[in-house]
Every structure is written in structure tokens, then in C-alpha cells.
Amino acid sequence: MLTKVQTSLARTASTQWDATSYQQFARLRERPVLELLDHVDLQHPQRIYDLGCGTGIATQLLAKRWPMADLTGVDSSAEMLEEATYLPIKALWQKCDVQQWRAHRPADLLFAAAVLHFISDHETLIPQLLSQLNPGGCLAAHMPNWRDALWYELMLETLNTGGPNGRALGTVQLRQFMAERTVLPLKSYYQLLAPLTQELDIWETEHLQVVEGKSPIFDWVKVSALRPVLLALDQAENKHFIENYLRLVHEHYPQEANGQTLFPFKRVFILATV
């Protein structure tokens, strides 16, 4: 259970997004959306919600596949939604936190690409989402599973020792919040969802992403996983954090001879039909 301070950190991080920076790796962020969509077997869903739609990377793919559906993109960030409104698709846009969101009418498809991992207590959240589906409706979700990734461990190490004279950075609550494991083991998702579903498919992938730039891994994670840290630290602490984190990331993720950087990335996929 999160404390009030940790809940405040999560809420702040969920609403303040840099839409332009997020688009930097749009092609790679689109790939797991395509993989997930490829497994959705619905023929003519009438009502679709894209939860955590962001800039609309998944929303436009949903609109292309089911152009006659009533499609709504839901996100907590006004900046992300503003970027999404420029897409040439037929969709409604709703500003709302996924934890607080409720469907006005039952859905045929809830699509959640790279959003549920930002929310704790999946044992409550995911059954609540399933309850908002029509019979035969589907929840399709993918989540980065970064909590045991090297770059994430380096972030925790930097928070714990990256200050002056090896001191910790930020508050105890921030460090506890970042150490939380919100994504469950695959077996736990099966045990949670099997009694609630008619069909259930759960799998995990690891994509050896090839990224380019001077500090591409930092550029990737600063707009997602590191956002709570960068928003919570003051200017001086941010400087210490970034300097020490970049040093560790460059040490553990060196550029290849061709200048590219290898960035292994795990994701969990869930396809649950009620």
C-alpha cells in the first residue's frame, strides 16, 4: 500500500509528460503495440477505449483496423492528449487517470499499451477493468517489465549513493516508491485472471532494441521510468543524479563499433477475454 507521499509522487508523474521527447523512439514504441494487436481476435468491436493513449501511437493503429468503431483515447496528461488531437483519425479524447476511469458504456475492447505498469495494486485494477467489458469483450495490455533491468537497478543505485560523498538523493519515500515492483510474475497474472475470463493468453518477450544517439538509453527512460525521479529532485540533486546515472549507463551500455547502443527490453503481454 502506497503512503500519501508516494501516491502524490505517482499522481504527479502520471500527469506531467514531455510529448515531444516521448515521440523520439516512436517506431520502437509502436512495435509491441503491433505485436499485441496481432493477437486480438475481435472482428467488429463497436466500442474501444485506448487507456493511457499518450500521443496516440496505439490509437491510430486501432482506428486503422476498426474504422467504424467508437474509439476513445484516455490519458491523464493534457500535453500528450494535445499532441494526439492532431492525428487524422476519428476518435474522442478524454483526460482522466486510468485508476479513476470508468467506461460510460461497457466496452468491447480495452487496449492498454505501456500504462498499467505505472499503477500499483494490479490485483484490484485489472479485475476492475475486466468488469467494464461486454461479454466476449477483451482486455489487451502490454507492460514494460523493467524492474529487474540493469538500467533500472543503476537508477536505484544512483538514488541511494549518487549524492555528495556517496549520500542518498531525494526522500526516503521517493526511493521506496521507485523500488516498488508493480508488475507481477506471469503466474500471478494467470492465477488472478483465470477465474474471471473465458480465454486468457499471457506471454513475455525480450527485444534487443538498437538505439542511436549520444545517450539513447537515458533519452528513452527519462520520459518514462525516470520521470518520478526527475520531477521530485531539486535542481542540485538532479544535477548529481544525471551526472552519476549517465556515467553508470555509459559504462554498462557501451556503444558498439558502429555507434549504436544495444538496449535489451522485456515486456509482459496479457490478452484476457471475459
Rank of each mutant, 00 (worst) to 15 (best):
I119A: 02
F118C: 06
V221Y: 06
L196I: 12
V74Q: 01
Q24H: 15
P228I: 12
A63D: 11
A107R: 05
L34P: 01
G136Q: 10
L51I: 15
D234I: 09
F111W: 08
S77N: 05
C138H: 02
T55Y: 01
A140R: 03
Q235C: 08
P32G: 13
V98Q: 00
E206I: 14
S188W: 02
Q23T: 15
R27L: 13
R175F: 06
D70V: 05
F177L: 11
V268P: 00
P228V: 11
Q46V: 12
G52S: 11
A141D: 05
T171R: 01
N134E: 14
V40R: 10
G136L: 09
G166I: 11
T55D: 07
M155N: 04
L9S: 05
R247A: 15
A91I: 02
Y22Q: 09
E30D: 13
Q209E: 13
Q191T: 13
V183W: 01
E251H: 15
L87D: 03
L71C: 03
P135S: 12
E251P: 00
H250M: 07
H207P: 00
A141H: 04
N165G: 00
P228Y: 09
Q260F: 07
H207S: 11
P228R: 10
R11D: 13
V274M: 01
V40N: 11
E30F: 03
E123R: 14
P228T: 12
E180H: 14
A84C: 06
T15D: 05
L109F: 07
N165C: 02
L193D: 10
V172P: 00
F118W: 15
Q128K: 14
Q46T: 14
T182Y: 14
G137V: 10
S131H: 13
K90Y: 00
R105S: 10
L129P: 03
H142Y: 14
N258R: 03
Y152S: 11
T12W: 01
N134D: 07
A140L: 02
V33G: 05
A103D: 03
V274T: 14
P144C: 03
R247D: 13
R175Y: 05
I202Y: 04
A140F: 04
L186E: 14
A69I: 08
L233P: 08
L139G: 07
E35I: 14
L159F: 02
T72H: 00
E35Y: 03
L130C: 09
F25Q: 08
A10V: 08
L61A: 11
L71A: 04
Q60I: 09
C96T: 06
Q16G: 00
R47E: 13
M1C: 12
L154F: 05
G137W: 09
R11I: 14
T158L: 01
G213Q: 06
E35K: 13
R167W: 00
H142K: 01
S76T: 06
L116Y: 11
G136W: 08
D234R: 06
G163D: 06
L36P: 04
E206T: 15
V274W: 01
P106A: 12
Y245D: 08
K239S: 14
P164H: 05
